[in-house]
């Protein structure tokens, strides 16, 4: 079996594990669903709905991805299953990539769920079928999965190489930063204007960020080693 198949094999297993975890599904549904609904209710105009879609799709993907990656990377390390995996013929990079893919696919699914909810509720509110703008559509279909993948890769890296205490601190930081961002009003405030029009510029900025995160993760990956993972496994 070649390494691409191996990566896909790991990814399939992770997707299966995530989809069988009721707690994770609940988190995904809550973040994807509730935040989608909340955001659209907080916004009003068609313009704001586009902004809502922009932020909800991105942040739901990253936030759900973070919850799932805790289960896929951190818990496997905490329970020491990772040690057995590291003894298999799989390379460390294949394991890592497989896990990233295994988290990204369901996380992106929940991001799309949030987008669908926002679109549906908005359509009901404006009494006609609401269609996102071309920029937002490209953002959802291309930028969001790339950004989510990049963010999950970086989170997975930290979860692999850092100890439990450090990961806890990072976890709090992620929640503190992401939750306020889930609200378009706050997002709008940060952009300087609630009624700012999301253009190719904002989408481009997001893409650049995604590429930068991917570049950073690729650079950091040279520090990923079996020894780093094993020595940060919590002792009993």
């Amino acid at each position: 079996m070649n390494s691409i198949n191996m990566v896909w094999l790991v990814a399939q297993k992770e997707i299966k594990s995530v989809l069988r975890n009721k707690g994770l599904l609940l988190t995904g549904s809550y973040v994807g669903g509730m935040f989608g609904v909340l955001n659209v209710l907080l916004s009003g105009s068609t313009l704001a709905i586009n902004n809502t879609l922009f932020s909800t799709a991105l942040l739901a993907g990253v936030f759900v991805g973070y919850s799932f990656s805790r289960f896929v990377f951190l818990r496997e390390k905490q329970e020491k299953i990772i040690e057995t995996m590291l003894c298999t013929p799989l390379s460390l990079k294949s394991i890592w990539l497989g896990k990233v893919l295994g988290v990204t696919v369901p996380a992106y699914f929940f991001s799309l769920l949030a987008v669908s909810l926002v679109t549906m509720i908005s359509s009901i509110m404006v009494h006609s079928l609401f269609l996102p703008s071309a920029v937002i559509l490209i953002h959802i279909v291309v930028v969001v999965p790339v950004f989510t993948t990049a963010a999950i890769s970086l989170m997975g890296f930290f979860q692999f190489v850092l100890g439990m205490r450090e990961n806890k601190i990072i976890g709090y930081l992620i929640v503190l930063v992401l939750v306020p961002f889930m609200y378009p009003s706050i997002f709008g405030l940060i952009l300087g204007d609630v009624n700012v029009v999301i253009s190719w510029f904002e989408v481009g900025i997001c893409s650049i960020f995604a590429v930068l995160i991917l570049a950073l993760t690729t650079y950091l990956s040279r520090y990923l080693s079996k020894e780093k993972i094993v020595t940060t496994i919590p002792s009993d």
């Binding site: 297993k13 299966k16 594990s17 069988r20 329970e79 020491k80 299953i81 040690e83 003894c87």
Partner: peptide, 11 residues
């Protein structure tokens, strides 16, 4: 076969 069984509980 290490200290942990290396098994996935949800499978």
């Amino acid at each position: 076969l290490l200290e942990n069984d290396g098994l996935y509980e949800r499978l």
